[in-house]
Amino acid sequence: MKLLRYIFFPIVPIYYAITWLRNKGFDLGVLSSKSYNFPVICVGNLSVGGTGKTPMIEYLIRLLKHDYKVATLSRGYKRKSDGFQLGNAQANADVLGDEPFQFYSKFKDDITVAVDANRQEGIAKLCELNPQPEVILLDDAYQHRKVQAGFNILLTTYSDLYPNDFMLPTGNLREPKSGANRAQLIVVTKCPEGISESEKLHIVNAINPKLHQQVFFSWVSYAKQVVSKQNTLLLEQLPEFTLITGIANPKPLFQFLIEKDLRFKHLNFKDHHHFTSEELQQFESLDLIVTTEKDYMRLMQYPQLASKLYYLSIEAVIDRSSVFNAAVQNFVAQY
């Protein structure tokens, strides 16, 4: 795979030119973009792969849900439904996609969860609801320039910072690095919890934020227990198990479990993987399964796994959280 990426290096300037011209078209108003008279917050990244968008959306939900009617709007990647869909009692991962269904499962009493590949149409449909959302969180919509979010939060991972990356197909960047200029907040995600001030300064210098931007650092906090539909087990109580992952980067989770001295085998699949009947049959023969919360959303629908299927939840922790929170809350309070 890496060899192919280097072979395709001559395509990089072409992809760069196309995405740069598209962005310039939106910046100059040649291509139309719709803005809104209520707060729309976009969470996204410049790169493909997992940068921690789901934990960030959940962080924002927790921050805002007590004071505002919050809605999330996602594409619903790899769902089996079409068009605009709302989270409701009949919804599952096939209807909403695994990540939006995770939002619905955790926050259904407090927020509205919707999916639509066309973000403009999705926002319009949300505005028809009664009551209408007061804040809309756009999940993974940084490149959806037809919607002009009032506030952009750009994520980049500690181990793969966008200033050090290349454009597709050789690197992982979806658009030129200059696209970062649209963000008000830049969050370096998945940092080691003990990241030093000198390393933070080095990263900030590499990012070189504009005057309108602030840079923050975050890390993942893992739960102390795994949860099933009917049971909870502390991590230290876990017998030998099988870890099943279908996420972009399972390495941090794998390392966390290793550091806990837990005994497990690891079955790793591609991000958003739809499990086949043969794979599910293999899972049935396992004694205990631990998975991510996102993967659990896809696996929970199979009753044959219910007694052995557990998930480990995570939350984003943000350094200087009071400053970060104030920036978001001040934006929302303007409306």
Rank of each mutant, 00 (worst) to 15 (best):
F103H: 06
N23D: 14
D109M: 08
V113Y: 07
A124F: 14
G50F: 07
F84M: 00
C127D: 04
A114T: 00
Q102V: 05
Q102T: 11
N88R: 03
L28D: 00
G29F: 11
A17S: 15
Y68S: 02
I57A: 04
M56I: 09
A91C: 14
K53Y: 03
D109K: 10
S105A: 15
A89Q: 15
A17D: 03
E128W: 01
V12K: 06
S33V: 14
K53N: 01
Q85V: 00
S47P: 04
K80R: 11
I57V: 15
R22K: 12
G122E: 01
L63S: 09
K125I: 09
N118V: 11
I14H: 00
L96N: 03
I61L: 10
G52E: 09
N92R: 08
G29A: 09
G83C: 10
Y36W: 13
K106N: 14
K69C: 01
D67G: 10
D109I: 05
I61A: 01
S33N: 06
K34Q: 15
F103P: 00
L86T: 05
L86N: 05
F103T: 02
A91S: 15
E128I: 04
K78L: 00
E99N: 10
S33K: 10
N45P: 04
D27E: 13
S81H: 08
L63A: 09
N23H: 05
L21D: 12
N88G: 08
D110H: 13
L21W: 09
L63F: 03
S32Q: 15
G97I: 01
D67I: 10
V48Y: 15
D67L: 01
L73R: 10
N45H: 05
E121Q: 13
G25T: 08
L64D: 06
Y59P: 00
V70H: 06
G49A: 03
D82R: 15
I11W: 02
A93M: 12
E128S: 15
F84G: 08
R62K: 15
V30K: 07
R119I: 12
L60M: 11
A91E: 12
A17G: 13
P131M: 03
L46I: 08
N88I: 11
R62Q: 14
K108N: 04
D109E: 14
K106W: 06
A89P: 11
K34E: 15
Y59G: 01
A117S: 14
S47L: 04
C127S: 14
L31Y: 13
Y68L: 06
K65S: 06
G49T: 00
T19A: 07
K69S: 01
R62T: 12
D94P: 05
A93Q: 08
V95N: 00
P39G: 05
K53W: 02
G44M: 07
D110L: 07
Y15C: 13
D109W: 08
F26I: 12
Y68W: 11
V12L: 11
V30C: 04
V113M: 06
A71G: 03
N130D: 09
L96P: 11
D67F: 07
S105R: 10
C127R: 10
N92A: 07
F84H: 07
N88W: 03
N88P: 07
G44T: 02
A91L: 07
Y104N: 06
S35G: 12
P55R: 09
I18L: 14
R22W: 05
